[in-house]
């Protein structure tokens, strides 16, 4: 059985990617399962979808625990522990990542020796801050499995996307083809993983649950506002960055327009954005009367910040 897992953010089309690949594999004569995995998270939050394909009817169910092929639509997700991107990855897992960072660097960062293929940046952009990469990543996956021909892939895209109109079909056909062609070097590199033998397995560590008193054993929380431990800042793909030179310190405007209430006031009277929790809605960017807040791609902002830090460190007297 082939086990394939797609990781992305809500809004990036991972469900669509799994359906496109699922349909393409099904049309290629395989038995298929595909499903998205939803949590309570919203647009921008980490999510995943998976596909199983086999020559036999598939009996396995639920999440793909150990993927043969792992596709990552957003390379910033590797830094998000709750995303669980690397969960169950073995030495045999093939990786494909939408990234401009080289595969060498990724192998070094992830401390793995697996094959990693890079997906090119797409020309297909559904909207500005959330490129929908579903068709491209599905095309790439199809090629890496070596089970789907170009023609069947395009048929699958046509079928699945038809409901969104001819314009969407055209864009997605193009994207799927782009993904498919980019993976020529890795065609068929994904290997089916073996079934778990029944006579050698890790014994489940079952325990006998004890009775806890209701104060503990009911779904109640006695902490106050501990939701701040959830770093919704990780949803962000764009970062609002204030230019204090332009800012007029009318903090009640950006401050009260932020739905999450993550814009406070610093000691100097300037708005202070809590990047741990800012979800990147960019309302403040639109609402700022002086246009003092700019929307910067998250990775760019992080890189710039690191450069500044390094420069400061260098400039410090030893």
């Amino acid at each position: 059985m082939y086990r394939i897992r797609f990781h992305g953010r809500g809004g990036q089309g991972m469900k669509t990617a799994s359906r496109l690949l699922g349909t393409a594999l099904f049309k290629s004569g395989l038995e298929v399962q595909d499903a998205p995995r939803y949590g309570a998270e919203r647009r921008g939050a980490a999510m995943f979808a998976y596909v199983r394909a086999d020559r036999q009817p598939i009996r396995e169910r639920g999440n793909v625990v150990s993927p043969d092929l792992l596709l990552v639509a957003d390379d910033t997700l590797f830094q998000v522990p709750v995303a669980g991107v690397m969960a169950g990855v073995t030495a045999e897992t093939v990786l494909a990542v939408a990234s401009t960072t080289s595969e060498m660097i990724w192998r070094d960062r992830l401390k793995i020796a697996n094959p990693i293929y890079l997906l090119p940046h797409s020309e297909v952009v559904a909207d500005d801050d959330f490129p929908d990469v579903s068709a491209k990543i599905a095309g790439a996956a199809a090629r890496l499995t070596g089970l789907v021909s170009e023609a069947v892939l395009l048929q699958a895209v046509e079928e699945e996307i038809a409901q969104f109109g001819p314009k969407a079909v055209k864009l997605n056909l193009h994207a799927a083809l782009e993904g498919f062609q980019a993976m020529a070097a890795g065609e068929g590199s994904v290997r089916e993983s073996a079934d778990l033998p029944a006579d050698s397995y890790e014994k489940p560590e079952w325990i006998d649950l004890d009775l806890d008193l209701a104060a503990t054993a009911a779904p109640n929380i006695h902490a106050a506002a501990n939701s701040v431990q959830v770093r919704t800042g990780l949803w962000r793909t764009l970062r609002p960055v204030l230019d204090p030179k332009i800012c007029g310190k009318c903090t009640w405007i950006c401050g009260s327009s932020c739905p999450d209430g993550v814009i406070g006031v610093d000691a100097g009277g300037y708005p202070e954005i809590d990047y741990d929790h800012c979800k990147g809605c960019m309302i403040c960017v639109v609402q700022c009367p002086r246009h003092a807040i700019a929307a910067i791609p998250e990775q760019e902002a992080v890189d710039a910040l690191e450069k500044t830090k390094t420069a400061q460190l260098k400039g410090m007297p030893s």
């Binding site: 949590g39 009911a218 779904p219 109640n220 006695h222 106050a224 506002a225």
Partner: peptide, 11 residues
């Protein structure tokens, strides 16, 4: 004066 969120959702 006593924070209490009761019967919250689980994932």
């Amino acid at each position: 004066g006593h924070p209490a969120s009761k019967a919250v959702a689980v994932l």
